[in-house]
Simulated scan of single mutants.
Amino acid sequence: MSESRTVPPAPLLRGGPRTAPAPSAARGRRRAPLAALASRLTERDAWLLEMLAEHTVLTTAHITALWHTGQRSANRRLLALHRLGLLDSFRPRLQRGAAPEHYLLARTAADLLSARYATTPAALGWSSELVTRTAYSPLLAHNLGVATFFTHLATPNDPELGRASAWWSEQRCQQLWGDLVRPDAYGRHTRTDDTGTVGFFLEYDTGTEAHARLARKLEEYAEAASATRIRPLVLFTLHSHRREQNLHHTLATHPALASVNVATTARDQAAPGQAEHHPAQAVWLPLGRPATRTRLLDLPGLWPVEQRPTGDVEQAAAWTRGVAMPAPDPRCPHTPTPFAPTRPPRA
Rank of each mutant, 00 (worst) to 15 (best):
G125K: 07
W126P: 00
W126N: 01
S127Q: 10
S127M: 02
S127A: 11
S128H: 15
S128Y: 08
S128L: 12
E129M: 12
E129L: 13
L130M: 13
L130H: 06
L130F: 04
L130S: 13
V131W: 04
V131I: 12
T132I: 07
T132V: 12
R133T: 12
R133P: 02
A135I: 02
S137M: 07
P138G: 09
L140T: 04
L140C: 11
A141N: 15
H142V: 00
H142L: 04
L144S: 02
L144D: 02
L144F: 02
G145W: 02
G145M: 03
V146G: 02
V146A: 07
V146I: 14
A147F: 03
F149H: 07
F149M: 08
F149Y: 14
F150H: 01
F150W: 08
F150C: 03
T151Y: 04
T151S: 09
T151I: 04
T151E: 05
H152N: 13
H152K: 15
H152Q: 15
H152F: 13
L153I: 04
A154H: 00
A154E: 00
T155F: 08
T155Y: 09
T155Q: 09
P156T: 06
P156A: 09
N157S: 14
N157K: 11
N157C: 09
P159F: 08
P159N: 08
P159W: 06
P159K: 12
E160D: 15
E160R: 15
E160H: 14
L161A: 09
L161I: 04
L161G: 00
L161Q: 08
L161C: 04
G162I: 03
R163F: 06
R163V: 11
R163Q: 14
A164I: 03
S165E: 12
A166S: 12
W167V: 01
W167R: 06
W167K: 03
W167L: 06
W167Q: 05
W168T: 03
W168A: 05
S169M: 08
S169A: 14
S169Y: 05
